[in-house]
Design a protein around this nucleic acid. Structure first.
Lengths: 297, 297
DNA sequence: CGTCATTACGGAATGCGTAATGATA
DNA sequence: TATCATTACGCATTCCGTAATGACG
């Protein structure tokens, strides 16, 4: 039994006439008769009562008509869904992101993507950059918002956002009133740092530049999330170098000041190089479009 | 696209291996490859990612796998239901019956039929014999319990039950104490008759036999249901000739007595001669078996 | 170099069309 | 006799098998 048999049978059952059914199916009567007979033989059931002048459905034919229609509808649905999935209008996308992406990049991208692909089920998971690298390789996420660089060459990364670094200070900190602040001014100033395991790039950049200025920063405390870092700054434990987007973490006791001498911090999207999923492609396209590089977060 | 394509695809998707899938499908790899490729071309969607060493499903393939399984399951269901309907295990049967069938014949047959064909939906409708004849010809019922004869030769009838006639009398009626009663004893006795439109056979038989005895019965009142007839007898309006099965209509004020000289009254099942429905066949077989002809009701 | 999928090609099955036959009203 | 379905038969498609080729580890 093939879908063809079902189509033929439904046509005959609806037309109650082999000739008209054949016409509708764009074929001649004899092969239609053959196929119907074949179907009946395979089922071992008479579906149609041929009264030479009119065709009637047997009770079994009535039942089979209903069921055959369902099969055909389901088959059409299968094709339709596969095509939509193929166009990336349907499916699932597992998105990883570093905490600091939630401040601006992630919401902007998600909003636009959800509008463009409402059929895609987006699953979010907050992970550090190295965790995302692992998750990508293990196929636990499909795309990630990360802080470059990433080491694996199975993974591709493009920068979608750059934001300058700013200095977060306790409101009453002496440096808060300076007209301008440079990295050299941090000599001897207690520092709260984001843990290297969370964002190696920022950590190494700050330490490296300080070393270029001839000093090692006084790392008072480390924390694994910016939320915590800002909390510690508010508590007066020290100042912190954070990307400008972190300004969205408001606190009464914290002020943000521009600081010179630091390169812009990059936010990238990472994905498996070999992943050709159309959903991913659509997401990447949105990500590149949704955030304006060089804008301040 | 045919069911074959779906079967092949499901096999490959489940085995994640063309070779094993081909083995499972009892065929060789090349045609399997061809069919899958054909399917993908028709859909315009890549369903499988061939990595030369392993076969992976694309997201669209995942979607299509689910849907294809549903199509195949539905197709199997269609076949199964058609076969069951063909065996008469499934379907609908519209049964007509005269009121007097409810006393014994109908319940017995229905009980046995329901046990034997639990999947059949039985729809009951009380109709007089001529109404059933019309309903059969109009395809409003499939089978009927009737009082023979029926006139149309498109309809077949077999007698499934015979019961003798008895006389229903008011408890205090003079005839009630007679050792035996014959039809001749009804001369001059007020009679309550079932309307001829309800059961022509009984009406004509009684009148005909009376006429043979040289008198016309004193028809005091007619009614269209036995229930009413017995009520009128209880009210003292007269005596009534009824089939023995009507004894089930108990009344404090009515007694039943045997009466000689009347033929047994027949209950038949009627159906369209050309109706070859297996459900009907099963019902007829049950009807012939369930009631024992010549038994008293 | 071995495994596994695809391409190439030939044969057999079969689905469809034309023509003839049959059945029924 | 006219209509409509089935049977008869030939052709073209196509489905599948065998053999050869290709790709990846």
């Amino acid at each position: 039994m093939e879908l063809r048999h079902l189509m033929y049978f439904v046509a005959v059952a609806e037309e109650r006439h082999f000739g008209r059914a054949a016409q509708r199916l764009q074929m001649t009567q004899p092969p239609l008769s053959q196929q119907i007979r074949q179907l009946e033989e395979e089922l071992g059931v008479t579906l149609l009562q041929r009264n030479a002048r009119r065709v009637e459905l047997t009770p079994a034919g009535e039942v089979f008509l209903d069921e055959a229609r369902k099969v055909l509808a389901q088959a059409e649905r299968a094709v339709e869904l596969a095509r939509r999935a193929g166009r990336g209008e349907l499916g699932r996308l597992r998105v990883g992101f570093v905490g600091s992406a939630t401040y601006d990049v992630l919401p902007a991208v998600l909003r636009m993507f959800r509008r463009q692909r409402p059929g895609v089920n987006v699953v979010l998971q907050e992970l550090s950059t190295p965790q995302q690298e692992e998750a990508l390789l293990d196929d636990r996420i499909d795309v990630g918002f990360v802080r470059p660089p990433m080491s694996s060459n199975l993974i591709e990364v493009t920068v979608v956002h750059r934001s300058p670094c700013v200095l977060a200070l306790p409101a009453n900190h002496p440096l808060a009133n300076r007209p301008s602040i440079g990295l050299a001014d941090l000599r001897g100033v207690p520092l709260v740092m984001l843990a290297r395991s969370t964002w190696a790039g920022l950590y190494d950049t700050v330490l490296g530049l300080c070393r270029q200025h001839g000093f090692s920063p006084e790392i008072q405390q480390e924390a694994r999330e910016f939320q915590t870092v800002i909390g510690l700054v508010a508590g007066g434990l020290g100042v912190a170098v954070v990307p400008a987007s972190a300004r969205n973490l408001h606190s009464r006791d914290v002020v943000y000041r521009e600081i010179g001498g630091l390169p812009d911090m990059e936010m990238g999207v990472a994905w498996r190089r070999k992943d050709s999923s159309p959903v991913l492609a659509a997401f990447l396209s949105v990500a590149r479009e949704a955030v304006r590089p060089r804008d301040e977060g």
